[in-house]
């Protein structure tokens, strides 16, 4: 059985926030809630790194452990989802999550919290697949349509990988082996290919 995972390649992420926009557009996420966001480390310093962060669909999810009404559940593919009909908006999951994934709409002036909202790996919720009720509460159910999360599919540099954990791990491993590490990542070979892969044009003077 495939296990759904996200993996962000920090060497490729250009901090365009395309994934954030794609998520908002696809799931019609309300104002004040960002299911996904781009975090930049050492911003403005040469060698800065950006990664796109959302719910990591943990195998041993802290949000699941702390929820007092047990509204979280895990699908067969390892996607951590929640039932908004059961959620009481207590905010425990918000404090438990190390990635800041569960968020609450900040609509009211007096601390109105409503229902928690989080990344669903574009897998909807407990309602019937692609029903109106499911879309209104959780957003699009792309997994049931035979697709992958909109953020990963929209990523222009394919920095954000999403899907079967085994497959994307193999893709990332191939990338890391090809480009090397540290100073090898930068420079001529990254832009134009390794010397052994380059072919001299016919008739060129040596």
């Amino acid at each position: 059985m495939a296990r759904m995972k996200f993996l962000c390649d920090a060497e490729r992420c250009i901090e365009c926030n395309g994934c954030v926009t794609a998520c908002k557009q696809e799931n019609e996420v309300p104002w004040g809630v960002n299911r996904r966001r781009v975090v930049t480390l050492n911003d403005g310093v040469p060698g800065e790194k950006s990664i796109s962060v959302a719910c990591m669909h943990c195998s041993d999810a802290p949000c699941m452990a702390v929820c007092p009404v047990d509204c979280f559940y895990r699908t067969e593919e390892g996607v951590v989802l929640h039932d908004k009909d059961m959620c009481i908006g207590c905010g425990y999951c918000f404090y438990a999550c190390p990635f800041g994934a569960p968020q609450f709409p900040q609509a009211g002036a007096f601390g109105m919290r409503g229902k928690m909202d989080k990344c669903t790996f574009c897998a909807g919720g407990p309602e019937a697949d692609n029903s109106k009720e499911e879309f209104a509460k959780y957003g699009s159910n792309r997994l049931a349509q035979g697709k992958l999360p909109a953020c990963a599919e929209m990523c222009s540099t394919k920095a954000l990988l999403g899907g079967d954990g085994d497959v994307i791990a193999d893709i990332f491993r191939d990338r890391a082996l090809t480009r090397g590490k540290g100073a090898e990542v930068w420079g001529w070979s990254t832009a134009y290919g390794k010397p052994d892969k380059q072919q001299a044009p016919k008739g060129a003077k040596s």
Partner: peptide
């Protein structure tokens, strides 16, 4: 729920991610 299926669309995504 139908969940994840390795459809042609998904295989195409994996292929493009290998670039």
């Amino acid at each position: 729920s139908q969940g994840y299926q390795e459809s042609a669309h998904v295989r195409n995504y994996y292929r493009t991610a290998k670039v």
